[in-house]
């Protein structure tokens, strides 16, 4: 219930109007949205029970390692409801396959649709989504870790919450199924990071400083 309460309201995209090139405009709008989502994500992380007890170094490591996974849980969750096969980055930024392809994000589209249909098939509850998001951050396999015991305690707290929630619903296999979906999330996030790095390096799409800093940490 704490995670449900601290879940930030979805952001709206602010349309970039610095260029007439439609697909570049889409990219710039998307990158601006991502940058603002990152800011919100960092504020959100501090509110997860146990996160602020970690050393500053470990907080940084977990975020640098797990930010894309945590953000993509949100995108995949929002995209489930989309009737057409769009990716719902925001209510006012929904991209279909053709738009993603035109923007050079065909690979990201495919990866995210795959994740979305996996979540759809699992019929996740809001409680499961917020827990999955927090676990993605806690389980990000950041290296090096300053205090492994504290990170372990942070993970254990979330795992315990998930198990308690599922046993209250008498769902014996759900916690395990959720954990078994984490590898696909990791894979999807890796592909997303590569896609944005490509945009920046090969197509010289300008990125905001925070987004660039977080992508660089993964490069």
């Amino acid at each position: 219930s704490h995670l449900l309460l601290t879940e930030p309201a979805p952001l709206a995209a602010s349309q970039d109007d610095s260029t007439n090139d439609g697909s570049l405009r889409t990219l710039l709008t998307l990158c601006d949205l991502l940058n603002r989502e990152l800011l919100v994500l960092i504020g959100w992380a501090k509110q997860i029970p146990g996160f602020s007890a970690l050393s500053l170094v470990d907080q940084m490591s977990l975020l640098q390692s797990g930010w894309m996974e945590a953000l993509l849980v949100g995108v995949a969750w929002r995209s489930q409801a989309s009737a057409g096969e769009e990716l719902v980055f925001a209510r006012n930024l929904q991209l279909d396959e053709a738009q993603c392809r035109a923007a050079g994000l065909a690979d990201l589209y495919e990866a995210l649709r795959h994740l979305t249909s996996r979540y759809q098939a699992m019929n996740l509850s809001p409680e499961e989504v917020v827990t999955l998001k927090a676990m993605a951050l806690a389980n990000s396999d950041a290296e090096p870790v300053d205090c492994p015991d504290s990170v372990q305690r942070f993970q254990d707290g979330l795992h315990e919450a998930l198990q308690e929630y599922e046993s209250s619903r008498r769902e014996q296999h759900r916690a395990g199924r959720l954990l078994m979906s984490l590898p696909l999330l990791r894979q999807t996030a890796d592909r997303a990071v590569q896609a944005f790095l490509r945009l920046h390096r090969h197509r010289r799409v300008p990125l905001h400083k925070l987004l660039l800093e977080m992508l660089d940490a993964k490069a």
Binding site: L39, G43, L56, Q59, M60, L210, E213, M214, D216, A217
Partner: peptide
Amino acid sequence: KEKHKILHQLLQNST
């Protein structure tokens, strides 16, 4: 750490 100064600053802000 110098490389990640924005994240560092954001985490240090108390709010």
